[in-house]
Amino acid sequence: MALRFLWGVVHTPRGGASAFVLMLVIACALFAPLIAPYGYALQNLPGSNTSPNALHWLGTDEFGRDLLSRIIHGARTSLTVAVTAISISVVVGMTFGAIAGYFGGMFDRVVTAVVDLTWSFPEILIALILIAIIGTGTESIIIAISIAYLAQFTRLTRAQVMALRQETYIEATVNLGAGHFHVIFRHLLPNAITPVIVAGMLAIGDAIILEATLGFFGLGAQPPIPSWGAMMSSGTAQIFIAPWIILFPGAAIALTVISINLFGDALIDALNIRSRLRDV
């Protein structure tokens, strides 16, 4: 059923085009060493800053490294960080949101207060503060990004659970003698999960931008591991002599994020859950 549904989404122009680009990016991330024509750290100083040509389709950077290979490897960094961070965020956020929305009381008040507080700061600021505390590196930005997006999923799940808790079938299940665990995991979360998953998918796009921004500041993956943000950062120095160094990683980010947003949008329309997502 789910497969046939996805097939239907892919068969719309918007869903199909965005799915194609996403498959390409995911393939790059999974099979980077096989697809990339050169190694991502292979330097060739005499051939630095060459413009796109037959040997280096997207040109080379200031160390003569092949830009196409680095972008393909960069997809791996970006997607790993974004997907891991958002997955952690969704799982933890759903747990907090479900407990807060179901039990209410003091826990709910504390969770809501913290969520509202973090809601008023931009994600980038929260991530920067956290990195200042825990340090730089790939693991650090995963943790920072996952905490930065936690409020969103907690809030969405809490709202869903609070609405679903009023449904008669929940009362019926309680009347059968079900405990809290059964009610939350067998009824509330399965019914609340769809909008949260779609919001999570859209957040992956935002997280890729956040990862690139942190990479641009040199806070993410450390050299020579390529990250799209760090590549753009090194391109700023050569922007007038070798504009392709900043242009192509930027295009990779834009294309990926636009595709994620378009695909997410197509999913929202196909699932008819736009109104349930309004809270985010």
Binding site: E167, T168, Y169, E171, A172, T173
Partner: peptide, 11 residues
């Protein structure tokens, strides 16, 4: 229950 439409989990 009064409302059979919401008395069964839709999933």
């Amino acid at each position: 229950f009064q409302d059979p439409y919401s008395a069964i989990d839709p999933r």
